[in-house]
Simulated assay, not measured.
Amino acid sequence: MKTYTLYSWNVNGLRAISSKEVLPGVLFPGLPAHENIDILCIQETKADAHSLKPDITRIPDYFFYINPAERKGYSGVAMYSRTEPESIELGGLSPEFDSEGRIITARFPEFVLMNVYFPNGGASDERLAFKLRFYDAFLEKIKTMDAAGERIIFCGDVNTAHKPIDLARPKENELVSGFLPIEREWIDRVIAAGFYDSFRLFSDEGNQYSWWDYKSRARTRNVGWRIDYFFVNTAAKPFITGAGIRNDIMGSDHCPVTLTLEFP
Rank of each mutant, 00 (worst) to 15 (best):
S124P: 04
D125L: 07
D125N: 11
D125V: 06
E126L: 04
R127I: 02
F130Q: 02
F130S: 02
L132V: 02
F134H: 01
F138R: 00
E140D: 07
I142H: 08
K143C: 08
K143S: 03
K143V: 04
T144E: 11
D146E: 09
A147K: 11
A148V: 03
A148Q: 04
R151S: 11
I153Y: 00
G156L: 00
G156F: 00
G156I: 00
N159C: 04
T160W: 07
T160P: 01
I165E: 12
D166M: 03
L167V: 07
A168F: 14
A168I: 02
R169M: 05
P170R: 11
S177N: 06
L180G: 05
P181E: 05
P181Q: 09
E185D: 15
D188W: 01
R189Y: 12
R189H: 10
I191S: 02
A192D: 15
G194N: 04
F195M: 01
F195Y: 11
Y196E: 03
R200S: 08
F202C: 09
F202T: 13
D204M: 15
D204N: 15
E205I: 04
E205F: 07
S216G: 12
R217M: 11
R219M: 06
G224I: 13
W225S: 00
R226T: 03
R226G: 03
D228L: 05
D228W: 10
D228T: 04
Y229V: 12
F231T: 08
N233A: 05
N233G: 01
T234G: 14
T234W: 12
A236S: 10
K237H: 00
F239M: 01
A243K: 03
A243E: 00
I245H: 09
R246F: 06
N247F: 10
I249V: 11
M250D: 14
G251W: 06
S252L: 01
C255M: 06
P256I: 13
T258Y: 14
L259R: 14
L259T: 11
L259A: 12
T260I: 00
L261M: 14
